[in-house]
Amino acid sequence: MFYRVGQLIPVFAGLLFAAGSATAAGTGSVKTGKLVYERYCLSCHGAEGNGQGEAAEYMAVKPRDYRQGTYKWRTTPSGSLPLDSDLEHTLLNGLHGTYMPTWRALDQRSRRDVISYIKTFSPRFATEKPQDPIVIPPDPGYSDASVARGTAVYKKYNCSQCHGPGGQGDGPSAHELKDDWGNAIVPYDLTKGHVKCGDQSTDIYRVFMTGLAGTPMPTFADSMSSADAWDLVHFIQSLSPGYAKNMMAAAADRKTGATQ
């Protein structure tokens, strides 16, 4: 009996090499991406990609329903599909304060594969091309003067309607907001020292220059100059010392990180 089991080894060895599947540079493999999805993402985003995994019921902020191709964190203009690099940025950073973890411990191939796979849940990716990303001019630098100007921009664009005068997410409209999927949604508390996705100042900039698709958070790209937008970033950063700390950590990460 034991000898015979030993003889099975070559049979297994043959089977083993059926496992490898090569990935073309740049784009991921949908086939492998499905396995990545099943291993890491399925419990929240669901087998059908509808955001209704076994864990979703208990979550206040629901996992993304991928079927509409609606993604909040993009560098592309309002209404556009995201770039693959936008989705990768989300996977590398996670979404702070939600159940969506960071996936930077995975290898880049796995991330690319799963991105290719989640795109298959929405027919839009087959028929539409993402638009060109918005241009983000370099950060002119944090200063008290910029913060003061940013305070005025915050008032001018009536951000406080939702985010409240102090940015704590308690504006007059805050309690009646719904997202595109019909779930109640609260304006993010800007005094936490984090936005959900990313710790660089460009991550804050793109939020109001592209809008968060599927949520009441609009884009201001049509009416706001980039100088105003940077002042607004600095105003938000002045709301908590956490921003500067997290930004420095993110910069150190980029220097040493193998993957970003």
Partner: peptide
């Protein structure tokens, strides 16, 4: 690790 890391040998 041979093959994809998600289902490797």
């Amino acid at each position: 690790w041979l093959g994809p890391l998600v289902a490797p040998l």
